[in-house]
Amino acid sequence: MQNNAAHHPMEKYLRMDRMPHIWCSSCGLGTIVNSFMKGIKNAGIDTNKVAVVSGIGCTGRVAGYIKLDSYHTTHGRAIPFASGLKLANRDLTVAVISGDGDLFAIGGNHLIHAARRNVDMNVICVNNFIYGMTGGQNAPTTPLGAYSSTAPYGNYEQPFNLVGVAAAAGASYVARWTALHFHRLTDTIKEMAKKKGFCFLEVVSPCSTVFARKNKGGTGLDILREYKDRSIIDHEADPQKIPLGMNGEIICGVFINEDRPTFWENVQKGIEKRVVKTKNYKVIKNRESVV
């Protein structure tokens, strides 16, 4: 029953001329890319109007494999780049797909401020607990006591709880899944693509080559088996109280789904108020008519 002449249904959404991708065997990123593209497809959005921005790192390479308008920017700066893209062309659906080091270490400030500002974008943070591309150094998500290339005696820093940070910063939509929950991931991405406001999704993903090797975690397959045992779906959970550790439960679900006015809606409101105040003030709607 093998038919190699047939085309894989995802082929038209991926840059097949760049395959095989650079990710290791049993990395979760391939699954996440598939789920993302399925989610976008299921949301029924015109794929010409979707842009993906990535930072640097293993997850930073996602932009290069997705067949959308895609930008691979500098380390940590994916969110401000995407803010510019989205605010300059409000018709676009803008997604940022990047890693935990990129979004929470070097880009942490940008993330919390984009969430505070509630810029209409979807941020997907692939959390593998480590800096994979550079060879397994300590990340802001590395659990206490875990080993990494720069923590040979075990990590002595308290890790970030990513969903907690995003929720505290004011994101309109906060969710967490693992790479094993690919169907739910697809549904969440579909929901996020349609939702207005700053949406944050954390995807816990296996890194077999460095994180598992340093911490005797086995292969990516072993980690997925572990996710199967450890993960619990609880949509009601308080995102502040569900940190991830080396062991223990991985609470998954959609924790926050609120409607807050976005940055651009507030800008419009501000301008309208001003128009009422001063009658001479004229807003020129059509950009082409100017200059």
Binding site: M1, Q2, N3, N4, A6, H8, M19, P20, C24, S25, S26, C27, T31, T219, G220, L221, L224, R225
Partner: peptide
Amino acid sequence: SINIFKDRCKGCGFCIE
């Protein structure tokens, strides 16, 4: 039908498991 592109596979075993 199940279609397998053998040369794309990186042997992670996810599908089997």
